[in-house]
């Protein structure tokens, strides 16, 4: 079992996301996370999918996704040549007394406190998945009231593998 990050460039048509997610569910592929957003060229959407499976399955995923009419391009974001980021918003329950402790953990991770309430804080953290996991582990002693994560997105470094749009 391996985890792979696929980056797709797709035509920005209605229903494109459901076509892709439908393909994953009907063929029994896993989606760990999926993010989508329009690119600099409004005709295209960039989708990042994190998935896992054995090599044959990952190979099939790549081919089946590439086959979809709306998919212009599919690339594998290899860890050694890509950057990944995810945004997490974490609402932690803490009394005014505990507040400073949470803030100092957040500082170490360069996370931002974006809301403060009487009994809670909201922390904004950006990083790769390991960083977010490490941060959540450190918050072990506190009660996490709510957690919202965007899922991973990423880009390949450099200009060698850029897909230029017509």
């Amino acid at each position: 079992m391996h985890t792979k990050v696929f980056q797709l460039l797709v035509d920005n048509t209605s229903g494109v996301l459901s076509r892709i997610s439908g393909l994953f569910s009907r063929r029994g592929y896993n989606i760990d996370s999926i993010t989508a957003g329009v690119t600099a060229d409004e005709r295209f959407t960039r989708i990042t999918i994190v998935t896992h499976g054995d090599d044959d399955i990952l190979d099939q995923i790549e081919k089946q996704v590439a086959k979809l009419i709306d998919v212009r391009d599919i690339k594998v974001l290899k860890p050694e040549e890509s950057v990944y980021r995810e945004l997490a918003l974490i609402k932690v329950k803490c009394s005014p007394k505990e507040r400073q402790g949470v803030i100092s953990i957040a500082d170490i991770f360069r996370a931002n406190i974006i809301d403060v309430g009487k009994e809670s804080l909201i922390i904004e953290l950006i990083g790769d998945q390991e960083k977010i996991k490490a941060f959540l582990d450190l918050l072990d002693g506190f009660e996490i009231l709510e957690l919202a994560r965007t899922g991973m997105t990423g880009l390949i470094r450099g200009i060698d593998k850029v897909t230029y749009l017509d």
């Binding site: 044959d56 190979d59 099939q60 081919k63 089946q64 590439a66 086959k67």
Partner: peptide, 11 residues
């Protein structure tokens, strides 16, 4: 003609 058929059921 369909690359996804190649390797789907046998390598």
């Amino acid at each position: 003609v369909d690359p996804a058929e190649i390797g789907k059921n046998c390598g």
